[in-house]
């Protein structure tokens, strides 16, 4: 029933391809994938390759980290050209130099970061890595 599971989505992301769903009913895009269109709930979707380009909308620098992570690092959300927002890390900015005016509104491309399998997760961890264009 799934056109694109989380596993397939991350396998593609690791290969440098950002996949998503395009709804054949309302035309909107859903990424990361779901069973149905995030906007209208239709299951009539097709898998498409997204541009992988977006703009940072907000961010934070994590300074007290969960078990398994080393602080500081930047977590951010970017709005893709196709509409959806993604959450990931910003890969090419020093966390101690991250400020609202040099992060928010910046154009990014989407890559992937892979973490080894930790406790309480079924697989290795994959997360989008945003690269701010020079």
């Amino acid at each position: 029933m799934y056109k694109l599971t989380y596993k397939q989505y991350f396998e593609a992301l690791k290969e440098g391809k950002l996949l998503g769903l395009k709804c054949n009913d309302c035309g909107s895009y859903t990424a990361p994938p779901k069973l149905c269109c995030d906007k209208c709930g239709s299951t009539n979707n097709e898998v498409v390759t997204l541009s992988g380009k977006g703009v940072i909308k907000t961010f934070t620098v994590i300074r007290v980290a969960p078990e398994g992570y080393d602080a500081p690092y930047i977590v951010a959300m970017a709005e893709l050209e196709e509409g959806p927002w993604l959450m990931g890390n910003i890969a090419n900015v020093d966390p101690d130099k991250a400020k609202m005016d040099n992060i928010i509104g910046k154009k990014v491309t989407v890559g992937a970061k892979v973490l080894p399998k930790m406790n309480y997760t079924p697989d290795e961890g994959v997360t989008p890595a945003f690269i701010i264009a020079e």
Partner: peptide
């Protein structure tokens, strides 16, 4: 846990991003 956890997001982080937004 699938699409956000591995960014290392914490709850203070969720609301920190909200403050910037």
């Amino acid at each position: 846990s699938k699409y956000e956890e591995f960014s290392g997001l914490t709850f203070p982080g969720v609301f920190a991003m909200l403050a910037h937004l």
